[in-house]
Each structure stands twice: as C-alpha cells, then as structure tokens.
C-alpha cells in the first residue's frame, strides 16, 4: 500500500468521505463493471456497487494495511454480487453495453452481435455462481487465474476447473455462432 493510499485510508477511517472517494476511485469503475457482469442490468449493478462500497467503508477499521486495498475491495464487491444474485434469482434481460469489435460494423454485424450477446447472457445465467464468477473475472475482467483464485478465496486448481467447465458450457450453448 502506497503512502498516499495509507493517508487517504486513515482519513477515510475518521469519516472523511472525500478521502474514501479518492481511495476507491482507482478501482470503482471495475467494481461497477463487475457488478453489471454479475447482475446483468445497470440498476442492480448500481445497487451492488453502492452496497459493496458502503460495506467497505464500514469495514475500513478492519482492513489490514499490509494487504492490497483493491483486492480487498473486489472481494467485498464479489461477495455482495453473489449475495445479490442469490436474493434476486432470475435476472432481467441484459442491456447492451458490450464493446464493439469492428471499426465499421455493418447492420448484419450488429444484428449478429446483438443476438450473440443476448444468447451469451442467457447462457451465462445457466452457469453455477462459481463458474460464472470465474468466467467473468478471467474472461471479461481480464484477471489472471491466480488473481481470480485470491478473489474467490479458493485454489488456483478450483478456478481453472470452474473457468474451463463454464467456458465449455458456454461453447455448447453458443455452438451455432461458433460454426458461422
């Protein structure tokens, strides 16, 4: 943890909201994206984002300075997202905020992409919470398998197993797109 972060953390512990906002500013974009990835819609993502960061704010006195603040924060966010998912059950249809991959997509590209993402979202809904989490962390959010293991508080072998199994399920569900 850097000196700047330490100073901000100490101020945030004293109730300084601005210090807390500055402290989380480096990683809250990823937390929101992760929350969206796990919930599938912006309203729920904002709820998870807020619940996670409020929980982190309340838990600041228990944070050990010798560990990585962002990892601690992501772990809280993941737990909130998982709790939210188990409370919410089935998810509403996705909103389309996936990145474009072609510079000048044709209408056919867009239609195919839209359909692909709709089906991907459905297929993600069919994964177990751990499979989905491993896929979201490693495939969408770009975490290394080792980092995902730390966040999910499980072994590297387990993450691989969740990730590969989840990916295989997705491939089966999306077979028609892969053959095109």
């Amino acid at each position: 943890m850097s000196d700047d972060q330490r100073t901000l953390l100490l101020s945030a512990r004293e109730g300084d909201h601005r210090a807390f906002a500055a402290l989380v500013a480096g990683c809250d974009r990823r937390i929101l994206s992760l929350a969206y990835d796990m919930t599938g819609n912006t309203e729920d993502a904002q709820d998870v984002y807020q619940e996670a960061l409020l929980a982190a704010y309340r838990a600041l006195p228990r944070f050990r300075m010798d560990s990585q603040f962002s990892t601690w924060l992501y772990r809280i966010a993941l737990n909130q997202a998982l709790r939210f998912r188990s409370r919410r059950g089935r998810q509403p249809p996705p909103e389309e905020w996936w990145p474009e991959q072609a510079d000048h997509p044709t209408p056919e590209d867009l239609t195919l992409r839209g359909e692909f993402h709709r089906r991907l979202h459905q297929a993600l809904g069919g994964l177990s919470a751990q499979e989905r989490l491993a896929f979201v962390l490693c495939h969408h959010q770009g975490f290394k398998i080792e980092e995902a293991a730390e966040l999910m508080a499980c072994s590297v072998g387990s993450v691989k197993s969740y990730l590969f199994r989840g990916r295989e399920k997705l491939r089966r569900q999306l077979g028609e797109f892969l053959e095109k």
């Binding site: 974009r29 929101l32 994206s33 992760l34 969206y36 990835d37 912006t42 993502a45 905020w97 996936w98 990145p99 991959q101 692909f116 991907l120 979201v136 490693c138 495939h139 969408h140 959010q141 770009g142 999306l174 797109f177 892969l178």
Partner: peptide, 10 residues
Amino acid sequence: LHPVGSGPQL
C-alpha cells in the same frame, strides 16, 4: 467472437 477482456463497457 468474445475476446478476453471484453467485459461490458459501461
């Protein structure tokens, strides 16, 4: 079709 790191861009 779905590259690594292509999570939703909010």
